[in-house]
Amino acid sequence: MADLRASVPEYDKEDGEYKVKVICLGDSAVGKSKLVERFLMDGYQPQQLSTYALTLFRYQTEVGGKDVCVDFWDTAGQERFNNMHPSYYYQAHCCILVFDVTRKVTYKNLPNWFKELRQYRPEIPCLVCANKIDDVDYKVTQKSFNFAKKHQLPFYFVSASDGTNVVKMFREAIQSAVGYKENTTDFTDLVMRELENLDDLSLSNDVDSGVDTAGNSAETHTDEADEEQAEGATGTT
C-alpha cells in the first residue's frame, strides 16, 4: 500500500520542509473552496486527489522568519453523501470551520462538525468563519453567533467574493497551525514526535545512510506509531 499512499503528503516527517496541514470543514456549498481560492488568488493550481475525493492547495509562506509550506485540505464534496473519513483529520494542525450566513442550517450543523473534529483532533486550533456576508445586509455582522463564543473559538465574518477578512483569517489559521505544531501537548502528536526522534537517532548511527533509507524507515515508523496510538488509547480508557 506504500505506493498507493505516496500521493498523499505526510506532515509529521521532517524531510527538510516544514509542513503544516490546515483542513476546511463545514456543510456543502458554504464556500470552503472559494475562501481558499480567494486567499491564494490567481496562479495556484489546486491538486485534485480524486481517488480520495480531496482537493489540496499548497502555499509557501513565512512565519516568524521560518519558511513554512501550508497545505489547505478541502473536501471536494463527499460530505454530501457521508461522514468525512478519519484520514481527512489525520495529522491536521488547524481547522477552519465555515458556515454560510444566508443558510441557517449550515450554522446549525456547526456543532456536528465540531464534535467530529474533536473526536479525531481533540486539541488543534479551530477558527469559525461566517461566510457570504456580502450576500446579505452587512448588519448581519452585528448579529451574535454564539457557537464560537461558547467554545471560545476565534470568529470571523468573511466574504470569499469581496475578500473581507479573508487574508486576516488565513494568516491567523497558518500561525495557529505552526503554533500548534511547535507546542502540541496532544498525546498522539507527542508519540509521533518521539518516534521521529528515534528515527533520527537510528539514522545517525547508520553510516552514510542515504535519503532513500530515511524515507523508508520513516514510513515503517509511521506504521508503528499507529499501533502505539492504539495501545495508548486502550490504555487510557
Binding site: S28, A29, Q48, S50, A53, T55, A76, G77, R80
Partner: peptide, 9 residues
C-alpha cells in the same frame, strides 16, 4: 457530479 464539485466515482 454534484453542483460545482469535482466528479466522483
Amino acid at each position: 457530479k454534484t453542483d460545482d464539485d469535482p466528479p466522483h466515482g
